[in-house]
């Protein structure tokens, strides 16, 4: 046996094999695109806005001076900031609450077997995959002050009286409700898909065991399904909050923050101040108010998710 070993030839791999197995070379190569993407499209703008927020830069001037925290003082002193902050919170919390309720119901319905399930799944996913601007234009018509489908239908069915004609995007409370409805419509598909993935990851045996152990629908749902779904639910909520908190598209397209800033959120206000108003420094300062809140939300949820992690 020893002689056989002594005669053995060292196997040499071709350069292709050597490259494909060289992890020290491969991992930076594979990670590079992602890191480049984050640095260029996230890191750089973020640092730029940090820089802007302590300067007096505007769209029209080429000078830039350090002004300390003056921009932040200005923002906090403004009445609109507090309205926008309040609106952002209402917008986010209310919409995410309903997203959670609807997504849970939908995910459970879709995890059951029935004919034409793929069609229903497709329809539910549509709001998420269709460009939001297209969807928002549809909603603009639905909420239109003259042609509103809701109002015409309501009157035809005599739910609305002959003189009731709500201006959906024009009356402060209705405008807020309207943009919340659109945001729910937009986020529900994503949350549904996430929860659906969570539901399918629970082994059928566990549901069966609970059924045999004497649990009815509600006990199974509340004591088995929901707790097991909690980590992934937190992920869905985290996504929803981040998307809603930082999003300006729905508000921008439907109400532009109106009437009288009653639907203004921090994201739209930052845009109006910085880009349309030309006050880049002020806009940067407003948008930075979003940051600590989101970091806090992310940390809290990731901690919760880790604690409730189950195998």
């Amino acid at each position: 046996m020893t002689t056989a070993t002594a005669n053995a030839v060292t196997a040499k791999a071709g350069w292709r094999t050597r490259l494909a197995d060289n992890e020290r070379l491969l991992w930076p190569l594979m990670l590079a695109p992602a890191i480049l993407y984050i640095v260029l499209l996230v890191g750089f703008p973020f640092l730029l806005s940090l820089f802007y927020s302590v300067s007096d830069v505007t769209v029209g001037s080429r000078s830039m001076n350090f002004v300390g925290l003056e921009n932040f003082h200005r923002v906090v002193a403004s009445n609109t900031f507090w309205i926008a902050l309040k609106n952002t919170l209402i917008f986010t919390i209310v919409s995410q609450f309903f997203v959670l309720v609807f997504a849970n119901i939908l995910a459970m319905a879709l995890s059951a077997d029935f004919r034409g399930k793929w069609l229903v799944r497709l329809l539910i996913l549509l709001p998420w995959v269709a460009p939001i601007s297209l969807g928002a234009i549809g909603w603009l018509w639905i909420y239109d002050s003259i042609y509103s489908v809701i109002n015409w239908t309501g009157q035809a069915l005599r739910i609305l009286g002959p003189n009731d004609w709500p201006i959906w995007l024009g009356q402060p409370n209705l405008a807020m409700a309207s943009i919340i409805v659109v945001q729910i419509w937009r986020i529900v598909p994503l949350a549904t898909v996430i929860l659906l993935a969570g539901l399918t990851s629970i082994p059928q045996d566990i549901h069966d065991a609970a059924a045999v152990d004497g649990a009815g629908f509600w006990r199974r749902t509340l004591q088995i399904t929901f707790p097991l779904l909690l980590p992934i639910t937190l992920v869905a909520v985290l996504f929803g909050i981040v998307f809603t908190f930082t999003d300006m598209i729905v508000v921008f397209l439907l109400t532009r923050g109106g009437p009288y800033d009653q639907t203004q959120v921090l994201a739209t206000w930052a845009f109006f101040t910085g880009i349309q108003g030309g006050d880049l420094a002020g806009g940067a300062a407003v948008s930075l108010f979003l940051f600590p809140v989101l970091v806090a939300v992310a940390i809290v949820f990731l901690l919760l998710a880790r604690r409730s992690e189950v195998t």
Binding site: P203, D205, I206, D208, A209, A210, V212, D213, I224, P227, L228, S308, V310, T311
Partner: peptide
């Protein structure tokens, strides 16, 4: 009836 599953199906949480 009571059932014991191949995977035991214990409630992990």
């Amino acid at each position: 009836v009571a059932m014991v599953f191949q995977s035991y199906a214990l409630y992990p949480h």
